[in-house]
Nucleic acid binder design. Structure first.
Length: 140
RNA sequence: GCGGGAGGGGACUGGUCGCUGCGCGCCGUUUCGGCGGCGCGGGGAGGAAAGUCCGGACUCCGCAGGGCAGGAUGUCCCGUGGUUAACGCGGGAGGAGCGCCGCCAGAUCGGCGUUGACGGAAAGUGCCACAGAGAAUAUACCGCCGCAGGCCGUAAGGCCUACGGUAAGGGUGAAAAGGUGGUGUAAGAGACCACCGGCUGGCCGCGCAAGCGGCCUCGCAGGGUAAACCCCGUCCGGAGCAAGAUCGAAUAGGGGACCGAUGGCGUGGCCCGCGCCGCCCGGCUUCGGCCGGAGAGGUUCCGGGUAGAUCGCAUAGACGAAUGACCAGGCUGUCGUUGCGAGCGGCAGAACAGAAUCCGGCUUAUGAUCCUCCCGCACGU
RNA sequence: CGGGGCGUAGCGCAGACUGGUAGCGCGUUUGCUUGGGGUGCAAAAGGUCUCGGGUUCAAAUCCCGACGCCCCGA
């Protein structure tokens, strides 16, 4: 984050950190369980981004839940799989308020995510969600 | 001082937000077992968590005793580690191989350094390609010597062939079967002698021991390979937490009891089926029976066992799998500022890598930096 | 997580136990055969034996590590 030019004063904290509210929690209830994973893959609604692929699960009981998949085939090392999963989860956590409330999304990591920073993944998530039509500019 | 190599240490601190599971409190809900939400407290990846190369704990299975086979392990002593397979690690000693130096006529010996999964090659077996005459019972190509024959020559002698003797010399090879000097001989040879060097055995001395040193006589000539078979000493049941244990829905099937007219026996490995008897219904009857027909479950309990759940399971601990993001500081390198340093400022760097039953050992990976040792280059004394 | 196996020419495999010459089939190239192609015949090329150490005079082979790939177990 130190190489980011838009942060002006080094002593103060980042503006996006100050904007965090308790609504940014991501407990186990806001994650998907195995039946929802199978449901999301069966619906086959996917949009590919640069570092990730978004699979949608549109259902009446959906509540903006998260599922993460890091495949051993695209990320052979356990460390890179862990890092990719945490980056995707953090990106989702900070942007969950801008999503449409009637979907669950499943994030699939791609191989290039291994060498990028958090804000790169976050920007990629925003553009991919805009293309998928589930992005709202005003958070609720 | 610079560069490289080997081994070892080390692998940062604070705050905000988030996650996880533990404890406590409050609220909501409940089929009273819990479940959900919020708050607070304290805990939350490694030296290798890795590779899965070895062990152990633990669990289940098997098991009279002994031997064989198979696998593993390997100098000696001391210390140390583990709830000890033989052992690993550290230090020392001994022996072996290799390199350098010294000595020598040579075999070899001495010193220094270094290497290693270092029991035994004199228990036995196998193998040693190619080259070379000959490769483990040593060997006869050239050479040397003897003798016979032939040829040449006046002669001395020379040449050729066959047979025999011979391991001193040549050359081949990774390796050629003790060394020097002498005796001896046709020529030679441990054939014999002296000295030297090695080895088996015996005795003595030193050492806890592996071993080392000295002496002796009858002796011996015996290369390498055991990460070839093997011999000797020692150790070893098999599988693995996806082990295993507990609870156990629905469906199907098994067994018992009771209700019911709905049962019993035989055949049969079991079911189905068939036969006989009993029971029920209808018909006939000479009241002894005969013929025909129908035959079904229900309730409840038990046991095996599937899905699933819990335990196994841990002062980290899950099961689509928690330890992250950001900010600040510190650290190291470099650049600028300065005569140099300090300070300040800018830029860059932080590796290898992520628990799934646990614990040891081994191996492999590893940035900046620090410590020890070694090698090369340059400079100084 | 725990068991087990494999790596040799472009492809599929021998050779390894018992160390010394790397071989077979398909494919490739060249030539002949044919009017041309296929087929057939003849010849040739093509190998860090996955990699690194060790034992040995000598390693694809024996021993020890590393890397990659593939099976099996709920």
């Amino acid at each position: 984050m130190g190489r980011e030019p838009k942060i002006a004063s080094p002593g103060a904290q980042s503006p996006e950190i100050l904007a965090i509210t308790p609504d940014y929690c991501l407990t186990r209830a806001r994650r998907m369980w195995p039946a929802l994973y199978r449901d999301a893959f069966a619906q086959e609604r996917s949009v590919a981004g640069r570092f990730l692929v978004v699979w949608l699960r549109v259902a009446p009981d959906a509540d903006r839940r998260l599922g993460v998949v890091t495949s051993r085939r695209t990320l052979p090392s356990a460390v890179s799989r862990n890092r990719a999963r945490r980056l995707l989860r953090e990106a989702f956590r900070l942007n969950r308020g801008n999503l449409r409330p009637d979907v669950d999304i499943l994030l699939l990591a791609r191989g290039r995510i291994e060498h990028v920073q958090r804000q790169d993944v976050e920007a990629d998530l925003r553009t991919t969600c805009r293309r998928a039509g589930i992005w709202r500019e005003a958070p609720c």
